[in-house]
Design a protein around this nucleic acid. Structure first.
Lengths: 148, 148
DNA sequence: GAACAATACATGCAGGTGCATCTTATGCAA
DNA sequence: TTGCATAAGATGCACCTGCATGTATTGTTC
């Protein structure tokens, strides 16, 4: 699909940028659509086949590792681009796989803390190079033209 | 979500672009994720509420108008980021709404031509300003810094 | 022409997502 | 304390998507 996609920096250079014209906006949108589609498909395949993780599952683990502490569901909502209900289910799946655990928050018993387990850290460490490889493959055209 | 998202051109300027380092790639990915999520949600809401179209439906109509001729399902597949099966169903929905019609291809009776109807053109013309407005709203931070 | 692989599209099915709603807990006011 | 609005998170439901497969047609090889 869209093999002749113009790199975004070229889109941004080609037009009259002072005008913020429609063509520029639409080209940028098509760039985002194409890269998103390509990356999501590849991540789904690679993370799934090699590590048994979906992109959403990986992203949640990644956020947990990044913050390195227990997080409220709502805090995760701010960082992962999922609805609260979708996130709730992702956490449920991760918990069933023993990659995170849910702990009731004592200060506010409505709330739930999500804690990454050792198995979760291990799975994330294992999957991280795969994710980086996929992204590098897909976005390697992005900065090149800025330095060429 | 991610209100403090760094514009992509800043991401591309900030790092050592010669190195294509991981941080750059990941920041670019997060940019794509954030913009895609924001735009898709907004398009789903605005196109849906105001014109009774989903993003995929609009995109197919848009491609039809752009090419201004009947297209094979497979041709559309190359342009819209959907699987063949998903596209088949989008076309079915559009046909049920009388916005396109399916015509068996005489030269190759396995194939199907998709033709946009007058109602389809009208609906697209009506929805186009909405789509452009949404995209402009979301991508207006993108080029500005290049000219400031 | 017969047999068989390949192609174009449709469809059954499983899975993920968002919206609306439910449940439980908190906070605040009377 | 009681009553009610609000917040956190879970869940029913409808919808969309991709994968695998089915159906019809075409091309190819013998």
């Amino acid at each position: 699909m869209q093999e002749n996609l113009m790199p975004l920096h070229e889109i941004w250079r080609s037009g009259n940028l002072r005008d913020m014209d429609e063509e520029f906006v639409v080209d940028t949108w098509h760039y985002v659509l194409a890269k998103h589609s390509k990356a999501m498909c590849a991540l789904e395949r690679e993370l799934g086949d090699r590590h048994g993780l979906g992109p959403s599952e990986f992203e949640v683990l990644d956020r947990m590792v990044h913050h390195d502490r227990k997080l409220r569901i709502q805090e995760l909502c701010d960082e992962v681009h999922l609805s609260q209900s979708a996130l709730s289910r992702v956490v449920a799946r991760l918990e069933k796989a023993a990659l995170v655990s849910r702990v009731v928050c004592d200060a506010d018993r409505r709330g739930v803390f999500v804690c990454i387990t050792e198995a979760g850290r291990a799975r994330h460490a294992e999957a991280l190079p795969t994710q980086r490889a996929v992204l590098t493959e897909i976005f390697d055209d992005a900065p090149a033209a800025l330095t060429r």
